[in-house]
């Protein structure tokens, strides 16, 4: 039983591994060195595929994603900077292509909303704790020798 399972696992690993190799082989780009390839991979990982919108350009098998990868590669070869390449795509496909949306009026809530909620939560905690300790302080002063704590003042 265990052997069967192990063999199945091995086959699965092999299939996944070959799938990855295949994906590389289908779409070969003539990188001149490792640095260029790393830069390309990095850049396409930060760009969103428009067709299957939860995938980035590096991972997507969509036809358009392949075209855009080639376009990114060509722009790199033309000596464009990462920012210029991103701008090229934003001009055509809007900020949506960026996985990291820029900080601007329409994205303020997105960027700082979680922080605001966290701060609001912290404020609630601070206020609650202060109120409780204030409510308990006089009670514990009066019954300093009383061993059983008094819960009736508890607001919660």
């Amino acid at each position: 039983m265990n052997a069967v399972f192990r063999r199945a696992l091995f086959a699965l690993a092999l299939a996944l591994c070959c799938g990855a190799l295949n994906a590389q082989a289908i779409d070969p780009l003539p990188f001149k060195d490792h640095a260029e390839e790393t830069r390309f991979q990095q850049l396409t990982r930060e760009l969103r595929c428009l067709v299957c919108q939860n995938e980035n350009l590096a991972d997507s098998n969509a036809d358009l994603a392949r075209d855009l990868r080639h376009q990114v590669f060509e722009l790199m070869r033309q000596g464009k900077s990462d920012a210029q390449i991103k701008q090229y795509l934003v001009d055509r496909y809007s900020d949506f292509v960026l996985y990291d949306p820029p900080v601007q009026g329409s994205t303020l809530l997105l960027w700082f909303g979680p922080l605001a909620i966290l701060l609001a939560g912290a404020a609630v905690v601070v206020v609650t704790v202060r109120r409780r300790s204030r409510a308990q302080a006089p009670a514990s002063n009066q019954s300093a020798n009383d061993s059983s704590p008094n819960d009736e003042g508890d607001d919660w």
Binding site: L50, V51, D63, L64, D67, L68, Q71, R92, Y93, S94
Partner: peptide
């Protein structure tokens, strides 16, 4: 045929 100009038009589907 290549879809090159379509990128300039922002065509994605």
């Amino acid at each position: 045929r290549e879809g090159r100009t379509a990128i300039d038009f922002g065509v994605y589907g």
